[in-house]
Amino acid sequence: MDRNKLIKWIKTPAKMGNKYSLHAVYFCTGCGIIEIPPTITTRWDAERFGVTPAATPRQANLFLITGYVSLKTLKSIIRTYEQMPEPKYTVGFGSCPINGGMYWDSYNTIKHLDKYIPVDGWIAGCMPRPEAIFIAVTHLWKMIDNDMADGYKKYRNNYDQYRANQEKVLGSLDWPPLFK
């Protein structure tokens, strides 16, 4: 560990802790989940970056959405995201959460995920290779360093807009608002 890193650890331990300990909820939608098992096991070993799968959303701080988002999964995604403790980071994986991808004209698949929950980073591709996940993780480190990964603050500040968008596609949601 070099000196700069040590100084950073002493100055901002919370930020550094969040950087190097990303416990991920892998939201298994669509084809992206095929890329996850090699990523977390022997072949690519995500644990050396501090990325491990978390058993429940309460223990996690990284939300990886791996594939297209249908309306039914959108509901679960919102619930899962709201259960995670702050600070939390979201990464959309593959082109489907970015703009709908090949599901552009689908009656049941939302197009832009970032209109319903905040997304800190995207991994483009159909499908991205597991290496792309690590590039995303290192980018996320830079963003956390520069305070750019502030999706959870955005969610808090603009909760009315997010909730309105969610209710527009899902009808009435059967849980109370997270923030008043």
Binding site: G17, N18, S21, T42, E47, R48, G50, N61, E86
Partner: peptide, 21 residues
């Protein structure tokens, strides 16, 4: 047969958890 996390990983985890809401 993996490289594995640094040996200080639980410390980092615990610091992270304390900093979370």
């Amino acid at each position: 047969w993996r490289y594995g996390p640094p040996i200080t990983q639980p410390v980092i985890d615990i610091i992270r958890m304390f900093s979370q809401k």
